[in-house]
């Protein structure tokens, strides 16, 4: 399964090297501050988990890194160079690939078309050059088999695969096209236990192949299985920022469940 990741991961990744560094990053939508003073570092071969409740600023954070919205304060460095992404394409070209929870794939398109969407292989370089469909089918088929995803037919619409398989195809695609940083937006949110396990294994495999991974989730159990570094956001601010060695699962769970607020609530509702 990891053959494909090992083969295609960018060869210049050195474990621990900083790929993305954010300092004091914030974003205001008009008068609303969605994110404020966030520091985040993604190293090669490491998983940085970003946890938070709904509205905590997780999506805003992803949108900044993946180029959908530019940040309005602070600095974002990719490979040591300061960047300000104006479009997803710029972010992709910098080696950052984002796999979204619900919009990772186009359901009615064939598996192979999804795999190559946006990076199609063509038989020439002129504007209307035909697609090299045979090559794309073969490559997509091989890559997925190597990862242990068995589809009945590479030509079937990707909507006929299970949710976990679709996520895995999206991850495999990002890695195949040379992503150095992988941003996974709630990859396990809509999945059952078994499917989540499959996705977490690929996440670990991507990490082991030397990629930097940003794992966005609201499930501390999933985060703790793969994470090296944990950041909890609340209302756009950081409330926790710790390495794996400094934090326990209980602490993460308690903080995610509301921490102090939950204690107060339980006091209030005491029967």
């Amino acid at each position: 399964m990891t053959d494909t990741i090992m083969e295609h991961a960018a060869p210049d990744l050195h474990k621990g090297e900083s790929l993305v560094e954010m300092e004091g990053v914030g974003k205001a939508y008009g008068a609303i501050r969605a994110l404020e003073g966030v520091n985040l570092r993604v190293g090669a071969g490491e998983v940085t988990c970003v946890l938070g409740d709904n509205g905590a600023g997780k999506s805003t954070l992803i949108k900044i890194i993946s180029g959908l919205h530019a940040h309005s304060e602070g600095t974002l460095k990719v490979d040591g160079k300061e960047r300000h992404f104006g479009s997803p394409r710029e972010s992709l070209e910098a080696g950052i690939a984002t796999v979204y929870q619900d919009l990772a794939v186009v359901g009615l398109m064939e598996v192979w078309r999804n795999f190559f969407l946006g990076s199609e292989i063509r038989k020439g370089r002129y504007p209307m050059a035909p697609l090299d469909i045979k090559a794309m089918r073969e490559i997509a088929d091989q890559e997925l088999q190597k990862m242990g995803i068995y589809v009945k037919d590479i030509n079937q619409p990707i909507g006929t695969l299970s949710g976990g398989q679709r996520q895995c195809v999206a991850i495999a695609r990002a890695v195949y096209f040379g992503a150095r940083v992988l941003i996974l937006d709630e990859p396990t949110a809509a999945l059952g236990v078994k499917q989540s396990g499959v996705v977490l294994k690929y996440t670990a495999a991507a990490r082991d192949a030397g990629l930097g991974v940003v794992f966005i989730t609201h499930n501390p159990h999933h985060a703790y299985l793969v994470g090296d570094h944990f950041i909890i956001l609340k209302l756009g601010r950081r409330v926790l920022d710790k390495k794996r060695s400094e934090v326990t699962l209980e602490e993460l769970t308690a903080e995610m469940a509301g921490g102090q607020e939950l204690a107060e609530l339980s006091h209030e509702l005491k029967r």
């Binding site: 993946s66 959908l68 997803p88 394409r89 992709l92 984002t98 979204y100 919009l103 990772a104 794939v105 186009v106 359901g107 009615l108 398109m109 078309r113 190559f116 969407l117 946006g118 990076s119 199609e120 697609l131 695609r173």
Partner: peptide
């Protein structure tokens, strides 16, 4: 490919770099 993707899932298409 881009036409199908733009209509089938615009946000997803944009995210993988389809204009």
């Amino acid at each position: 490919n881009w036409i199908f993707a733009s209509g089938g899932n615009e946000a997803s298409a944009r995210a993988v770099g389809v204009p």
